[in-house]
Simulated assay, not measured.
Amino acid sequence: MTTRRSYGDSCAAAHALDLVGERWALLVVRELLLGPKRFRDLRQGMPGLSGNVLSQRLRELEDVGVVRRATLGPPVGSQVYELTDWGRDLEPVLTQLGKWGGRSPLLDRDAPRSIDSVMLSQRARFSPSVAGDLNADIAVRIDNDRFAVRVGEGRLDVERAEISKPDAVIETDLPTFKDVLTHELDVDVAVASNRLQVQGRIELVRRLFDAMLVPATVQ
């Protein structure tokens, strides 16, 4: 086991930070929340992270039971990293951190973001009260990535997967999806300019993005 620094404090929050508080550790967790990834795919999602540091963080997260290695079945057969059940329990922690950090006046909203970060941010922005009785399975296709966004009973779920019979299909690129998500670009304007293609029930797509709130910046 790698040597880890510790706060030496019996508070459970302090212990949690002993486990996942090192720089980049929680971002590694973020990149695995939507499914397993190869080492090179993790690097792609965090371009500011060196290979050596990523290897160290993965070892540390494996040692404490947050991450484990797995092998994809044939014909791929690649080694991947995935979250354990306990590791996946960190999703609401990251969602709440996103809600809190999204209100910071110091947040650089033009800085690069991974596609997983953008897709997961829907959980932090989603307003059940605005969504109301919205019930929809929406396929999101961003370049070569495929996501399933499911809304129902006041809950939004996102996973890296295809939907066999979606109510609507969104096809776009990451900058456009991010702009629509943050209300910098209207859905209908994006469709009219061909930046966003929608198949199926576009009214459900409008309602989905209407339910994405922009957090108020702290004054």
Rank of each mutant, 00 (worst) to 15 (best):
residue 30 R to L: 14
residue 70 A to S: 14
residue 15 H to D: 06
residue 74 P to G: 09
residue 63 D to E: 14
residue 141 R to F: 04
residue 38 R to N: 00
residue 123 R to Y: 05
residue 39 F to A: 03
residue 56 Q to Y: 05
residue 153 E to N: 12
residue 216 A to Q: 10
residue 54 L to F: 00
residue 72 L to H: 09
residue 200 G to F: 01
residue 78 S to G: 07
residue 158 V to G: 04
residue 94 L to H: 03
residue 130 V to C: 02
residue 197 Q to W: 03
residue 19 L to R: 07
residue 196 L to R: 11
residue 106 L to E: 08
residue 84 T to A: 11
residue 23 R to Y: 03
residue 68 R to E: 08
residue 157 D to I: 04
residue 8 G to I: 12
residue 175 P to V: 05
residue 10 S to N: 05
residue 92 P to V: 13
residue 124 A to Q: 15
residue 134 L to T: 04
residue 95 T to A: 06
residue 190 A to V: 02
residue 15 H to Q: 15
residue 61 L to T: 05
residue 105 P to K: 09
residue 212 M to N: 12
residue 124 A to T: 14
residue 53 V to H: 04
residue 52 N to S: 08
residue 151 V to G: 02
residue 190 A to E: 03
residue 63 D to C: 06
residue 80 V to Q: 10
residue 122 Q to S: 08
residue 17 L to K: 01
residue 80 V to L: 09
residue 211 A to T: 12
residue 13 A to E: 00
residue 141 R to K: 07
residue 214 V to M: 13
residue 104 S to F: 07
residue 108 D to P: 07
residue 159 E to I: 12
residue 162 E to D: 12
residue 26 L to G: 01
residue 13 A to S: 08
residue 12 A to H: 13
residue 116 D to W: 12
residue 74 P to A: 13
residue 43 R to S: 08
residue 131 A to G: 05
residue 26 L to W: 00
residue 33 L to H: 08
residue 132 G to I: 01
residue 151 V to R: 04
residue 73 G to F: 10
residue 219 Q to T: 10
residue 76 V to D: 10
residue 94 L to E: 02
residue 159 E to F: 05
residue 154 G to L: 13
residue 133 D to C: 00
residue 119 M to K: 01
residue 61 L to E: 02
residue 13 A to I: 11
residue 186 D to H: 11
residue 218 V to F: 11
residue 31 E to P: 10
residue 20 V to P: 00
residue 121 S to V: 11
residue 33 L to C: 07
residue 115 I to N: 03
residue 32 L to S: 03
residue 136 A to K: 10
residue 33 L to V: 11
residue 18 D to K: 15
residue 46 M to P: 04
residue 90 L to T: 03
residue 165 K to F: 06
residue 15 H to E: 07
residue 94 L to K: 09
residue 86 W to Q: 05
residue 11 C to L: 12
residue 68 R to L: 03
residue 118 V to K: 05
residue 149 V to G: 12
residue 184 E to T: 06
residue 214 V to E: 14
residue 94 L to A: 12
residue 67 V to M: 09
residue 168 A to S: 09
residue 76 V to W: 09
residue 88 R to K: 15
residue 77 G to P: 05
residue 212 M to W: 04
residue 76 V to G: 02
residue 165 K to G: 01
residue 130 V to K: 07
residue 83 L to H: 13
residue 79 Q to A: 12
residue 71 T to W: 04
residue 18 D to I: 13
residue 196 L to S: 07
residue 139 A to T: 05
residue 200 G to L: 04
residue 209 F to Q: 02
residue 214 V to N: 10
residue 216 A to N: 01
residue 117 S to V: 08
residue 84 T to G: 06
residue 69 R to W: 00
residue 189 V to C: 05
residue 46 M to S: 13
residue 62 E to N: 11
residue 100 W to K: 03
residue 128 P to K: 04
residue 180 V to Q: 07
residue 121 S to H: 05
residue 38 R to W: 00
residue 142 I to F: 00
residue 166 P to A: 11
residue 116 D to L: 08
residue 65 G to T: 09
residue 88 R to C: 14
residue 176 T to V: 13
residue 215 P to L: 14
residue 90 L to M: 11
residue 51 G to W: 05
residue 135 N to L: 14
residue 68 R to H: 04
residue 215 P to I: 10
residue 98 G to I: 07
